[in-house]
Each structure stands twice: as structure tokens, then as C-alpha cells.
Design a protein around this nucleic acid. Structure first.
Lengths: 107, 107
DNA sequence: AATTTGCGCAACTGAATAGTTGCATATATA
DNA sequence: TATATATGCAACTATTCAGTTGCGCAAATT
């Protein structure tokens, strides 16, 4: 439990599923666990990891804790992706050109 | 060595650095290893993982193997992020509205 | 007041991971 | 042909990770 960054957090498929659920609306650990086969404690561990890297915020009401998704933190991944986005856009344009040239040949 | 998906691949900081370098131009394992403190074999292991999940393609010329970055595979991460993008855009718009309202009050 | 419910923490286990070292193979170079 | 270079593969190690089980505590319910 030393590495604690967003990329490490979203590497696990269960955690990605948790994030997708919480992006729709905040939930308690128990409510979340009902969506999965693993135990409540396993889900709670994932929640802990997601909270420690600030992908989740908690809001306590009584004995229930509602976990909220924090979009700003997820944006860090998006920012990192920026350097690659230009590449697949470039490739798409290249494909686009090829298709246009083929159309020109046919017509 | 069972899990082999893009999210798992980009979880490691060294592999992210490798991807960033190869996005600029293709390189051989030796050339890549010169950019890092770890051994050539360690880098080769990362390359293997990245290749197995198709983030890299290899092109052999003689005894050298040049590894190329595959943007299309990285796009999978971008597609997954799409479901969250709307959330931070929404938050930004909300902030935008607040700022506009404050301006209206001042004028 | 006694019990149930929601939750986190600690200890443990088996599997996966990143790294090292040593070795084998094929291509260049002397 | 002998040597140097580029690379991948296998074995081993220490660390990390996901999951389980058991426990304790505080808030709700009876």
C-alpha cells in the first residue's frame, strides 16, 4: 500500500466498475457491495484506495458514509492522455485522406 | 503475468514513460534502456507487457527491433474516460454560470 | 437496555509484479 | 572464423496486491 496514484487505482477492473457506478450517484459501501460478488470488506478496501488517491470523497450522515466521485482527479488521466490524442487523430486524418483518394479514383 | 489489458499496462510509471518516449519516435530496447536507471532486461520486460496488450508493435530490421507506439489501443482508455468527461465539463459549466451571475450583479 | 446494522481496521493467504542475474541465439564486425 | 552486439527467455527474490475472516465501535432500532 505505497503506490497511490490514479493510474494504479484504475488498473483494477472492480475499481473501474465502482467508479462507473459512483459517477451516476453517490452510494454507501453496503449499497455498492450489492453490485459485486466479492465481500463488503473487499469493496471497502477498494473504496479506501480510491479515497486515498482522491478519486472519491466521503460524506458521513449518521452511521452511513456516502462516497462521491471526484471528476477533477480523473481529469489527471485525461491530461496525461493529451500527448497521445494528437496521434490517433493524425492517423484518422490519414485514413480519411486515403478514403477520399479512393473515391476520386472511382469517380 | 495473466492480466494483460491497457489499464494494467499504464499503471506502472516506467511503462508510462516508455510510451511517452515511443510516441515521439520508434526505438530499440537498448536505446530505450539508456533513458532509465533500471537494467535492459527490466525495460525489455516492460516492452513485452506493452506489446502483449498491443500498445506497441515491433518491426525487426537485422538484429535490431524497433518498437512503435500504437495510438489506436491507447484510444481504448480515452473511450472509457468518455463517461466521466461529461462530469468535469458539467462542473466547469456550473462554475462558469456562477462567474457570469457575479458579473451581472456587479454591472 | 439489548440487539441489529453500517462501517473500518488488523491479520493472514495466495497470486501477481518488478526487478535481478545468467544464459542462449542470431546478426553484425574484425 | 572469432568476437562483439542486440535481443529474448528462464529462474529466482522481495514486494505488492486482492481477497477472506474475525473483531471492535458507533449509530439506529426494538
Amino acid at each position: 500500500m505505497i503506490r497511490r496514484d490514479v493510474f494504479q487505482a484504475i488498473a483494477d477492473p472492480t475499481r473501474r466498475a465502482i467508479l462507473a457506478l459512483l459517477a451516476l450517484h453517490a452510494m454507501t459501501p453496503n449499497a455498492l457491495a450489492e453490485h459485486f460478488d466479492s465481500s463488503r470488506q473487499a469493496i471497502s478496501k477498494h473504496i479506501k484506495i480510491l479515497t486515498e488517491c482522491q478519486l472519491l470523497n466521503q460524506k458521513q450522515t449518521g452511521r452511513e458514509i456516502h462516497y462521491h466521485f471526484n471528476p477533477q482527479k480523473m481529469k489527471e488521466v485525461d491530461v496525461w492522455m493529451e500527448q497521445f490524442r494528437v496521434l490517433w487523430e493524425k492517423r484518422f486524418n490519414k485514413l480519411d485522406e486515403i478514403l477520399k483518394n479512393q473515391q476520386n479514383k472511382q469517380s
